[in-house]
């Protein structure tokens, strides 16, 4: 159409029209400029800065630095503590993601099925999400205390053996994961509740007519598939958030005992702000970013196609 219109125009008018179109393009660019600048300053800039820093020997407060290529990464990948911390982070996520998703879904189904007090339950289970995790970690510290903690006192009263929850190497990561689940499932629950509300009631009517008699049959035929998009979102968000675990580790264990609760962000923190090796810390941050990027790509590319039905 545009070509035809242009061809039909007298020759003198064509350049004017082309100039007009250029002006339009320039205006469009100018209008997006503020957003572009903000994105550069707040998102892309810092990421680039971290990537560049990971290629230097910069130390916090140092006056000068030199580019050392990939030596930070080489050091990192040769370091047993880094692999330990990466393994711990993955193990933590492997407990927290299924735990918080399953618990969030279970509670959401129970609240949705019950006749009353929905707002009350919703609020109660959402409290851990809103509370400051540092403060909550301190409460957990009291509860988990080996001698006077509420949990061990309860176990003792029941005649069971008390454990040193935060001091035994095999127990510390699962214990932190339970706190992680406690903190996260309320958020997942709210997302699942929103998903449940949006399932058309007629699908349940159709399922009832088609012969789905049990709650399990209804769940498998309607609820679970219809929650697909929500579940995918919840799993990705939970994974990213469990990769970010830091507060509880910092308050409760400082990565110990003997690095058995060392996680990625805590390694980054201690390298960067305790040993002041900012270059190495930046390299850890880049690894972390890589994981988040992969998760986001998985969400965007693979799963999204399979769980959206239209």
């Amino acid at each position: 159409m545009a070509e035809i219109a242009l061809a039909a125009l007298p020759a003198t008018k064509a350049p004017a029209r082309r100039a007009g179109r250029r002006r339009l393009g320039r205006t469009g660019f100018l209008l997006t400029l503020p957003a572009l600048l903000l994105m550069l300053a707040l998102l892309i800039g810092p990421v680039l800065a971290v990537i560049i820093m990971s290629l230097t020997d910069y130390q916090l407060g140092a006056a000068e630095f030199a580019f050392i290529g990939l030596r930070n990464y080489a050091e990192l990948f040769a370091d047993k503590v880094f692999w330990k911390s990466l393994g711990n982070t993955l193990a933590y996520a492997a407990i927290v993601v299924p735990g918080s998703v399953a618990l969030g879904l279970g509670i959401a189904l129970l609240i949705q099925a019950g006749p009353g007090l929905r707002a009350f339950y919703r609020a109660v289970f959402f409290v851990p999400v809103m509370a400051t995790l540092i403060a909550m970690a301190i409460s957990w510290e009291f509860m988990l205390h080996a001698q006077f903690g509420l949990i061990n006192l309860t176990l003792k009263a029941l005649g069971l053996t008390p454990r040193a929850w935060l001091a035994e190497p095999d127990l510390v990561l699962p214990t932190l994961a339970v706190i992680g689940i406690w903190q996260l499932f309320g958020f997942n629950m709210v997302l699942f509740l929103a998903g449940l509300v949006s399932i058309p009631r007629t699908l349940y009517d159709a399922a009832a007519m088609d012969g789905a008699r049990s709650a399990l049959a209804r769940f498998r035929l309607v609820t679970w598939p219809m929650l697909g998009p929500v579940t995918m979102f919840v799993v990705i968000i939970s994974a990213i958030r469990s990769f970010q675990v830091f507060d509880t580790v910092h308050v409760l264990t400082k990565g110990g005992p003997s690095k058995s609760s060392e996680v990625l962000l805590y390694s980054m923190y201690s390298e960067g702000f305790e040993f002041f090796r900012s270059g190495l810390a930046a390299a850890i941050a880049v690894v972390f970013l890589g994981f988040v990027l992969v998760l986001t790509l998985v969400k965007a590319r693979v799963i999204e196609k399979k769980v959206h039905y239209s």
């Binding site: 058309p200 007629t202 699908l203 159709a206 309607v222 598939p225 219809m226 697909g228 239209s310």
Partner: peptide
């Protein structure tokens, strides 16, 4: 009325 087909 809405057909209520299972979209998945």
């Amino acid at each position: 009325q809405s057909y209520a087909l299972y979209p998945h």
